[in-house]
């Protein structure tokens, strides 16, 4: 096994490649096709949703409820309301029930 420093540096390079790669490839395209443009505009909604989805269904009913409440309160009021609503429910449940 190679020493830890080598592995760490290679992992850092791999991570940096993913963080610049999309931009570097895209900047060679010139003007963007409308479908590609639409796909890129959907990245936050699509990737963040895909990231969160398993948390909502694999951690128990109250955790799922916390995500739903966060969804509802941030839709109806604001982001901060959403986060606080989810945290309050989880905190109460885990400490007092």
């Amino acid at each position: 096994m190679a020493d830890a420093v080598t592995i760490i540096i290679l992992c850092a390079i791999a991570t940096y490649v993913t963080r610049t790669g999309g931009h570097i490839v895209l900047s060679r395209f010139g003007t963007l096709n409308h479908r590609l443009e639409a796909a890129l505009n959907a990245v936050p909604a699509a990737v963040l949703t895909a990231l969160v989805a398993p948390y909502a269904v694999t951690n128990g009913p109250v955790e799922g409820l916390a995500i739903l409440l966060s969804l509802f309160f941030s839709w109806r009021f604001s982001m901060i309301h959403g986060i606080i609503a989810g945290l309050v429910v989880l905190g109460l449940y885990r400490n007092f029930i």
């Binding site: 936050p44 909604a45 963040l48 949703t49 990231l51 969160v52 948390y55 909502a56 951690n59 955790e63 916390a66 995500i67 966060s70 969804l71 941030s74 839709w75 982001m79 901060i80 959403g82 986060i83 989810g86 945290l87 989880l90």
Partner: peptide, 14 residues
């Protein structure tokens, strides 16, 4: 669970 809640709230912003 703060990060999943934070990301959920952020998604709603879009």
């Amino acid at each position: 669970f703060i990060l999943p809640l934070y990301f959920t709230a952020l998604v709603v912003g879009f």
